[in-house]
Design a binder for these strands. Structure first.
Lengths: 168, 168
DNA sequence: TTAAACTTTCAAAAAGTTTTGAAAGTTTAA
DNA sequence: TTAAACTTTCAAAACTTTTTGAAAGTTTAA
């Protein structure tokens, strides 16, 4: 396979994976493009390469900055803004985990905490089934949350040494 | 909060979380409904409770069976099919992880393996940046894959004992 | 100042996804 | 067999999300 074709394929696959995991396709594609670019790119270049509009490029770049996945860079003497991606996949994974935890897991835990407080007649199957499922899910969610917190906090814990020893 | 309101809220929240993670809202809601139902429900009852059409209910139930999250049950002397959800949250998490691994992670690894094979001039920044990102992501993906395999295979490994000791 | 170079906004359009519901198909009991 | 009871299908409609592009806004150098 030729390099240009491989690049296209990489961008396409990354976009598809993103959309399957609830991240919009364009955002994942822009991220992929920056991941394989040795140098920072301008909005113009990104628009061109991916055939997307100015508005879309701008919004997507802002979102990616919001996710902590890319950064702006200014070149001395130039007005244009350049964008580049952090290339450390471990940082990327951490950043995504961190954001999803904050944006999605935390609000759900808040609701589950409320729902866990609902009281009722323990001999009523309607109540006890509801209560068991809610408290079980709440426990799991809180454990995942705590585990993530630990994982994301500790740079090189026993945990990472154990799980990802083949990788780092 | 009253039980009926709490049930509604649980179904709504589960649906929202599902859609954020790439699972269709109705599917997550039907799953939530069955999770808090002490008894199996018919298609009719599900349609009614969630105000969805017959077609939608049928498709969604089939999908949920495909994900291994719910099962059909037949009551002796009755023609209708009843549906019920596995209530063990640990099984649910395992099942979802298993399916996503198969449906999404595996195809991506296949593409990454191919892209890793692309050869080029190591002194060309275009090639070396592409190559580094692809091989790094490939390594991470394979590690996640292996880790999931281990986790999902071993019922009560050191891993779960360690990570989820507060939960089980 | 001014105007060129660039970035941001947002309403409307396009694209993508989900849902509907009526019709077709299947199964069962008699 | 038949027909009632139930399940499945799928094209069209509704809804949701994403994208566009032109206009407005901002910054900078002279």
């Amino acid at each position: 396979m030729e390099l240009e074709e491989a690049k296209r394929k990489f961008i396409e696959s990354w976009g598809k994976l993103g959309s399957e995991w609830g991240i919009n396709r364009t955002m994942a594609q822009v991220h992929a493009l920056l991941l394989i670019s040795p140098d920072p790119l301008t909005t113009e270049e990104i628009m061109e390469t991916l055939s997307i509009s100015r508005g879309n490029a701008n919004m997507t770049l802002r979102d990616l900055i919001g996710w902590g996945l890319i950064e702006k860079q200014h070149k001395p003497g130039e007005r244009k803004e350049y964008f580049f991606a952090d290339k450390d996949v471990w940082n990327i994974a951490k950043q995504v985990a961190k954001e999803r935890r904050k944006r999605e897991l935390e609000p759900v835990i808040k609701v589950l905490d409320e729902l866990s407080k609902v009281t009722g007649d323990a001999s009523d199957p309607e109540f006890s089934t509801f209560n068991k499922s809610v408290t079980d899910i709440n426990k799991l969610a809180k454990n995942v949350d705590k585990t993530l917190e630990t994982m994301l906090g500790a740079e090189e814990s026993w945990f990472w040494g154990g799980i990802f020893k083949l990788f780092k």
